[in-house]
Design a protein around this nucleic acid. Structure first.
Lengths: 172, 172
DNA sequence: TACCACGGTTCGATGAATGAACTAACATGG
DNA sequence: CCATGTTAGTTCATTCATCGAACCGTGGTA
């Protein structure tokens, strides 16, 4: 989609955003990054995504500046993919979409609850803290399992998300 | 994507939302519906979308309850596609995404400005009215052209959006 | 030396998107 | 009555993306 097959001609910032993060799988990769996934193998295990597609998406996200690839050990050389400030700003749209799904697409109550780390209060659908009154960034959020959470997976991410976990904190 | 090729296994409401509105073009169709587009031909003209894809997307959106198809005249029989309450709730995620694009993807200032109809104040990136303090739904919003707006199209939607226009109000 | 882990790339088969052409229902003008 | 136009589609051949399995390369480790 990003390669020539774009939404050019659409004088609209939504279209431009969708060129970047509107492809299949891309937003799920970003969501996992918010949860603290950083390594190729962990994305692979949690998403059940074809390897070729994952490589393409990670590359594209690096290219537009949502992720950075950084070396975290030399022997053997290993890189991890970490959200940039631009990427972390996707938190609000991501949460808003996810909450829309939760409200309107049925299911057994919320799967995950998001809390403001500094005060413990639960966040509203646009990431506002009801007690502080401000919109909270991912950096200050903790995920906790909600009543609708099933547990049928046992990859690192799924494991970590069955316990309270600070957003962005590495899962492995 | 919705036909068997889904994100099943993802215990996540984001994945479920993306099954519904994550396909190419879908979110742009919803955006246009927010602007007041209701007719097949107007979507076609404003989006430059292949006809077959538009038909498929409109059908899918009706099926999941984001749009309703309703007869508005009988001779000749003509239907229009209108947002449901569920569809209108997509406003917040839509705006959030669009604002992310505007902030982070460059461009010459905001293309469109969104104002609270009842008080005239400009809305923030999550659709809050700074003077009323509440999150405002599409029903109470007016779009106005912003400094970054280019005008290179002359379909009904583009015309209408070069003047202040109430959201959801039919463009033709 | 053999084997394993990790992070990819390559490849054939399948499915979706594209754009142009065609269809159908009805209206209008002469 | 016939030609033309408008709207909302469908059909079809081509191109492109996705899928899943197999393969590859680098660097440990037994």
């Amino acid at each position: 989609m990003a390669l020539g097959k774009n939404y050019e001609g659409q004088d609209c910032s939504l279209a431009r955003a969708l060129e970047v993060i509107g492809e299949r799988w891309t937003l799920l990769v970003v969501r996992d990054a918010m949860y603290g996934v950083r390594r190729y193998g962990d994305f692979l295990a949690h998403l059940d995504i074809p390897r070729a597609v994952l490589s393409q998406r990670l590359g594209a996200l690096v290219e537009v500046g949502v992720l950075v690839k950084s070396r975290y050990q030399d022997n053997p050389p290993r890189d991890e993919y970490v959200l940039t400030a631009v990427g972390r700003e996707l938190w609000v749209p991501l949460l808003a979409l996810s909450q829309w799904g939760e409200r309107n697409l049925g299911g057994a109550g919320p799967r995950r609850l998001f809390h403001h780390v500094t005060c413990g209060a639960r966040l509203d659908p646009v990431s506002r803290c009801p007690s502080c009154g401000t919109v909270v960034g991912v950096e200050e959020i903790e995920v906790r399992p909600g009543p609708g959470l099933e547990h049928n997976r046992d990859d690192p991410v799924s494991m970590v998300l069955r316990e309270p976990h600070r957003m962005l904190a590495p899962v492995s």
